[in-house]
């Protein structure tokens, strides 16, 4: 089966900043992204878990986007600024997809 190379951007980000990240991705021209809830974790000397915060303001989400390298590059500039303010980590990897026209 023929597979096509794309870039996969994954951000673990505080829920309150997810809409801002979404706007950055949309402005960069990606065709779609997915937001998943994160259950618990540890970072910055602090353990966190989803059920522990009644305000849900400290909830974390995972955003996944697969796109062309050019679009990911455009998004990364803005993401760097976003993560200078908001809690989150980001990674980019190369993946292979079956239907490149979807991305």
């Amino acid at each position: 089966m023929k597979l096509y190379e794309k870039q996969r951007l994954e951000i673990i980000l505080e829920r309150m900043a997810a809409k801002r990240a979404g706007r950055i991705l949309e402005a960069a021209g990606v065709s779609g992204y997915t937001v998943l809830p994160a259950l618990a974790g540890f970072g910055g000397e602090t353990k966190w878990q989803r059920d522990a915060d009644i305000s849900a303001s400290r909830d974390m989400v995972v955003m996944v986007v697969i796109a062309d390298a050019a679009e990911i590059d455009v998004a990364l500039d803005q993401m760097q600024d976003l993560l200078a303010d908001h809690i989150g980590v980001l990674n980019v990897s190369t993946v292979q997809v079956m239907r490149p026209d979807l991305f």
């Binding site: 505080e14 309150m16 900043a17 915060d53 305000s55 849900a56 303001s57 400290r58 303010d85 908001h86 809690i87």
Partner: peptide, 11 residues
């Protein structure tokens, strides 16, 4: 209410 607003206003 305020913690959520603070995450947006003073992240």
């Amino acid at each position: 209410a305020v913690p959520a607003a603070m995450r947006l206003a003073l992240p």
